[in-house]
């Protein structure tokens, strides 16, 4: 087993552990933190079903962003859905036999990679061209885009310019999953691509990529508009008022 194989095998285990543990930690923190008051941005749905619909529109269509800024919405939406397709397409490297629907996605996956780049470049352009967005961008905001562009770019280059041995790569990943390690071919481009992905996985739970789980814990979006019907007292707030109510009845 070559050094490269061992290093990358360990890196992927580490990255996966950090990603899963990091996200689990954040999510449990969000879940554990109470929201003491009802603050949905109204008009808001008055039923759970309504909220499910509202959240679905946010997740699938980026409804609020659409209201907010059409260019950001366009590039952002293209990027996220292209990314989704690309990720699904990559399932072929982790499944044997390949699931049928993943095979069906195959041709779209390639367009998606280009679309992803278009979305990312559009988003990055705004960080330079719009003075307001330039003002709020920290170095990490630029680097995050650079990282994603580099991942998409290195992937595309492997597809079209410097091919890598896909069969061997798949064996490597399946080996990782079943703890039966197989060699990783040390193609420079492949190693770059994989390194960048590892970086992304590790950075995820510590960065603004937390917007993904965050959306589901955003009280202005997930809360049902029913404060007159239901009380909503947080455990820490229970102590307020209880004493006062007892001395009401004079």
């Amino acid at each position: 087993m070559s050094v490269v194989t061992v290093v990358y095998a360990l890196l992927f285990y580490l990255a996966t552990a950090v990603l899963v543990a990091g996200l689990a930690y954040r999510v449990q923190r969000y879940a554990r933190t109470p929201q003491p008051l009802k603050i949905p941005t109204t008009p808001a749905p008055t039923t759970r079903t309504g909220v499910v619909l509202r959240m679905s529109r946010e997740v699938v269509f980026f409804e609020s962003l659409f209201k907010g800024n059409k260019w950001t919405w366009l590039f952002g939406w293209i990027f996220h859905f292209a990314l989704l397709l690309v990720l699904l397409r990559h399932l072929r490297y982790f499944t044997e036999p390949i699931w049928d629907w993943v095979t069906l996605l195959q041709p779209w996956g390639i367009y998606a990679a280009y679309a992803m780049l278009v979305g990312l470049v559009g988003l990055w352009a705004r960080r330079f061209l719009v003075d307001r967005v330039r003002y709020i961008s920290a170095p990490s905001d630029h680097l995050m885009l650079l990282l994603l562009i580099a991942i998409a770019g290195s992937g595309l280059l492997m597809k079209y310019v410097w091919h890598t041995d896909i069969i061997a790569l798949k064996a490597f990943f399946l080996g990782l999953m079943y703890f039966d390690w197989r060699p990783l071919s040390p193609d420079p481009l492949l190693l770059i691509h994989l390194t960048l992905v590892v970086v992304l996985m590790i950075v995820f739970p510590f960065s603004k990529l937390l917007h993904a789980p965050g959306l589901f814990f955003s009280p202005t979006r997930y809360q049902v508009d029913n404060p007159r019907e239901r009380r909503h007292v947080a455990p820490w707030a229970e102590k307020f008022g209880r004493t006062a109510s007892s001395n009401l009845s004079e």
Binding site: L65, N69, G76, R132, V133, D141, K208, F217, P219
Partner: peptide, 14 residues
């Protein structure tokens, strides 16, 4: 929860 999530989730989309 609002404060915790809002401080984490912003992507500086503008």
């Amino acid at each position: 929860r609002s404060v915790q999530v809002f401080l984490d989730a912003c992507v500086k989309c503008g």
